[in-house]
Amino acid sequence: MLVQLMIGALMIGSVYGLVGLGYGMIYKASGLMTLAQGDMLMIGAFLGLTFYKYLHLPFVVSLVFTMIIMFSLGLFIERVLVTTLLERGAQTVYIILCTISVAMVLQNIAMFAWGTNVKQFPPLFKKTTVDIFGYSVVPENLLALGVGIFCMLALHFFMTKSKFGTSMRAAAQDELAASSLGINVPLTKGASWGIASMLAGGIGVVVGPIFGVYLSMGALIGQKAFAGAVVGGYGNMYGAIVGGIFFGFIETLISAFVTVTYKDFISFAVLIIVMIIMPTGLFKEQVMDD
């Protein structure tokens, strides 16, 4: 029982962590905030469903296609909407509102394209449970966990080892110095928005088989991922993952041992308490107004 709980907590935690990573990347690269990550996850799930169920593509191919589309969507939002607003001297609040309206538009598009009902993914595996060390585990959960860990490692190596990843980090540290060294700063900013929505979309495809695919599936996940990113230290990649897993465990343990009805209430309360007593997060990122 406990082992299944732990695997469930790790699974949902890595989902929060990956979605929250997107927030951190965007904040690091451009100092801005998006609230569209949750709906990016939803759109990703619907796209994955379409590729897998209606076009009968293999799961991995659906996942890759979805991630490519989501990357372009994120790039588009940054290049077309956010940059235009910034050039007109918009405040950060206006950018947040812009992402909220993007989220609303995405929800409406999804509603017209796929309807308001909960859509079920066809089962990905033949077995409903697999045995690991004598414990039976749902394979979809393991898949989500595996994809989560893979994405985190891939992103880590991309950011630290590849040339483009290094230039992204350089641009995040000092735009002026980076662009004087020949780094295409607008491209790195666009790419960070693209990667953020790509991660959210990819995770959407993976959690679709677990929770079902529906319009509001992203809302709570998006907000809790944000909470995780804050708890970890906003703007810190690894902090977002740790924070996400932290919330995964809190939620799972509370709903298993304390109360199911109030689990989301308690999650948000934990977030507010953390923001009050430890606003810099576990990884000590700067959040104060000075």
Binding site: I96, V230, I272, M275, V287, D289
Partner: peptide, 18 residues
């Protein structure tokens, strides 16, 4: 009153959700 815009947004969202 201590937080900057992004975090204030999040705090108020969390409050509304609670």
């Amino acid at each position: 009153a201590k937080l900057v815009k992004h975090f204030l947004s999040l705090l108020t969202i969390a409050f509304g959700q609670m």
